[in-house]
Write a protein that binds this DNA or RNA. Sequence first.
DNA 1: TTGACATATGTAACTAGTTTCATCAACCTT
DNA 2: AAGGTTGATGAAACTAGTTACATATGTCAA
Lengths: 342, 342
Amino acid sequence: MTQKAQAPKKRSNLRDVAKAAGVSVATVSRVLNEPGVVKKDTLEKVQKAIAELRFVPSAAARAINSGRTRFVGALIPTLDNAIFARFLAALERKLSDDGLSLVVATTDSDPDIEAAKAKGLVDIGAEGLIITGASHSPEFYELIERTMMPTIITSYFDNSNPLPTIGYDNEAAAKLALRHLIELGHRRIAVVHGPIHNNDRTQARLSGLHSLSWEGELTTFETEISLRGGADAAARIESNSSKPDAILCLSDVVALGVLFGLQSKGVSIPEDVSLMGLDDLPSSAVAVPSLTTVHLPVSRMGERAAIALARWISAQERPQPERLEAKLIERSSTIRNAVLNE
Amino acid sequence: MTQKAQAPKKRSNLRDVAKAAGVSVATVSRVLNEPGVVKKDTLEKVQKAIAELRFVPSAAARAINSGRTRFVGALIPTLDNAIFARFLAALERKLSDDGLSLVVATTDSDPDIEAAKAKGLVDIGAEGLIITGASHSPEFYELIERTMMPTIITSYFDNSNPLPTIGYDNEAAAKLALRHLIELGHRRIAVVHGPIHNNDRTQARLSGLHSLSWEGELTTFETEISLRGGADAAARIESNSSKPDAILCLSDVVALGVLFGLQSKGVSIPEDVSLMGLDDLPSSAVAVPSLTTVHLPVSRMGERAAIALARWISAQERPQPERLEAKLIERSSTIRNAVLNE
DNA sequence: TTGACATATGTAACTAGTTTCATCAACCTT
DNA sequence: AAGGTTGATGAAACTAGTTACATATGTCAA
């Protein structure tokens, strides 16, 4: 009600300040950008005017001249999986070092949403994009091509992709995990994975598994990528008549969920069944039992992507693809198959 | 090397398109913004020119006219704690509905970093800010005041704060938790909390605990807010000569860490000691035993903050503070104190 | 056939900064 | 004292769009 009696005077601009200080707009601009070249008392006069008029330079007007908006966009499937949060954290940190801000958009793994949000990011002036995975909609590619937007693909590696990829080899990572279980003597392995639809990373991991030839069998279970999803899968596995020697989850969150699910049913890990994840979340090291997994270098991936994108934008250097190595992390949730050893 | 032989021709602009299509700039602008009013063959002519010249309108030039950049900034302590990731996810989702993008900046709970990043967000043209908690640096407040930036504080509620707050009452939430433990008959309670330095939410929760008068004692343990931090605290609590009846962790991540830490030492929960968290992460419901906690409505907080900020920006309606209720969630990690009952 | 009106388009002035070039005074040199 | 250099400032052009206003057709009714 007594909500400020002042006139709703609009924001003041450079010209207002120049007039108030009795100088030219050029001088005000200099005060803002190279105060060193302005005589001391002129400087003070102008700064006084700036303060009095509460002048705040318009970012848009600056951007129109410099052609730089100083921010990039990241399109990620979801923030609800800690793995993307970790990636974003590293990305934001490094971009910030280069004076770039990060606009985050989530796509829910839907290529249409991705295309729409990418359009939105371009519309508000993003100077570059970070995206996830291999498959995207035609509209998306059309947009990237038309705008010549510097765009880096993460979370998977492919030398031959026309866009630079910075990521790991999902097939190889999954194989690494499976090989470990095979070496431990496991022969009947349950594989728990997230939705295949629209998720090329999951697809690649699965095809990695199937490409391995060995004497044993895989049974696959699809579930939601969440703790709850893992717990559900555990219930399904348990209710099955034939019990696996080992369970391989293609995400750590799911593995943790399976761990909880089995624990609540009184199944001991790794005594009754070996359990393995893939990602290496911080939780996995602390869980009881600690989770054997394959480490995906997502923080490093974030850093590398940030550096590459910043260079691409500021120096027009198109980045080289970068393959980051996944690494087996042996912890306590997997042991040698006892039956086989007898 | 054979990197495109084409001339490095700069981006084409409205004038170029107008010239190529043989029309005025106004017509091109109309084609972009109200295609309906342009005659069909003119429209096609212009669209052809746009396509040929690969014309992409400059976001900055648009922004300079509309005065709108269509994005807001969020300053959060960290992305490594799932609670903020959840908050951000909700925030981004709702902002996106209003055509606003979200720029994320992390502060590491450092007021100076926060002030610097806030400055950066304003510099790139953010139309509003979402910040976390009560305490901020003088430079930060000076910036908000000078730029009259619409700014909403989240993660805590305070009617009397000059900036609108949308959040919960941290003192009350902590009291809710403690009261539950007291009602269960626990008298010696270990409290595990995150760093107090620069963290007003933790401070408020602690002061809530200390404001309760009851016949029993609190022992506090400070640790890092992470699973590892919780596990460490568990070790410290265990090595203490006097064992608590219950452990109250002021964050769920920490509680989960404590859970794992105790499990690995063979301590049974809740039989040997009751354990309680505060936050209500998805993990807490799935953990074994499932974690009694106090639910903080962070998703709802994100939505409400998004709606309020969008309205503030587009309709100059300064939001009313909103208090969101924390709620006790009883699960299996707490039971009645057996000793007391004998 | 002329006036009234709608439709389509163009001209030029705006938005808010940066930047180039010119100007002028002050100082230094010879 | 004339000429050269430096320092500080201003005028105006420039960035890339939007938009108010003017103008040129075309259609229809009187």
